Amino acid sequence: MARNFERKFGGRRPKKVRGRLNVLIHELEDAQEDQAYFKQQLMANSGVLPSQLDGEDYYELIKINQAKPKDKRAEDPMAMVNRLRGGNK
């Protein structure tokens, strides 16, 4: 497959592919920076060490960190419409 690619494109990837690769690389670097910042905030605010977080699921920790109490969550749109109309009719 690599030989076919080299023959077809003369050893260089087309601009469209290079552009997409650059976007993917940037997204990966950004995600890594998000993880580092999250660990930094946990260290500063909670005293949690990075070694304690390394075995944990990063996305679950983010979800837990962003959890809101029931009274601060978005309301179901249909329930809100019914409440504003004066209840169920």
Rank of each mutant, 00 (worst) to 15 (best):
L53F: 08
A79G: 02
P50Y: 12
M78I: 12
Y58V: 06
V17S: 01
D30N: 08
K68F: 05
E29F: 00
S51G: 00
N45G: 12
N82L: 15
A74I: 08
K8S: 05
V48C: 04
S46Y: 09
F38W: 10
Q35D: 11
L24E: 06
K89H: 04
D34H: 15
N65Y: 09
E6N: 08
R20D: 01
E27D: 06
A74H: 12
I25M: 05
R13G: 00
R3Y: 08
N4Y: 12
V81D: 06
Y58M: 09
D54F: 12
N4L: 13
N88G: 05
E60V: 05
S51K: 09
F5T: 05
R13S: 08
I62F: 08
R73L: 03
A67H: 02
K89E: 07
E27W: 05
E29K: 12
Q52M: 13
K15I: 14
S46L: 13
A67Q: 03
G19S: 01
N65R: 14
L21N: 04
K8M: 09
E56S: 09
N45I: 03
L61E: 14
F38K: 02
L28M: 11
L53M: 11
D57L: 06
D54T: 06
I25C: 01
V17I: 07
G86D: 03
L28Q: 07
I25H: 01
R3W: 07
L28W: 11
K15Q: 14
N82D: 12
E29C: 01
M78E: 12
Q32G: 15
G19H: 01
E75G: 07
K39M: 13
N88L: 13
E33L: 15
Q35I: 10
S46D: 05
V81I: 12
P69F: 12
Q32I: 10
L84E: 07
K89D: 06
P50S: 10
D71T: 09
K15Y: 14
M78P: 00
D34R: 15
A2Q: 15
E6I: 10
R18G: 01
L84I: 04
R12K: 07
F9Y: 15
N65D: 13
F9V: 02
M43E: 10
G10D: 03
P50Q: 09
R85S: 12
L84S: 03
G55S: 13
F9A: 01
R83V: 04
M1Y: 15
P50I: 12
H26P: 00
D57V: 06
D34I: 11
P69L: 10
L53K: 02
S46V: 02
R12A: 02
R12T: 04
P50A: 06
K70Q: 08
D30W: 08
Q32R: 10
G87V: 07
R18M: 05
R20Q: 02
K89S: 04
E60G: 01
A74N: 11
L61D: 05
A31V: 13
Q40V: 08
N65L: 08
P77S: 15
R7C: 00
L28H: 10
R20L: 02
L28Y: 15
N82E: 14
L84R: 02
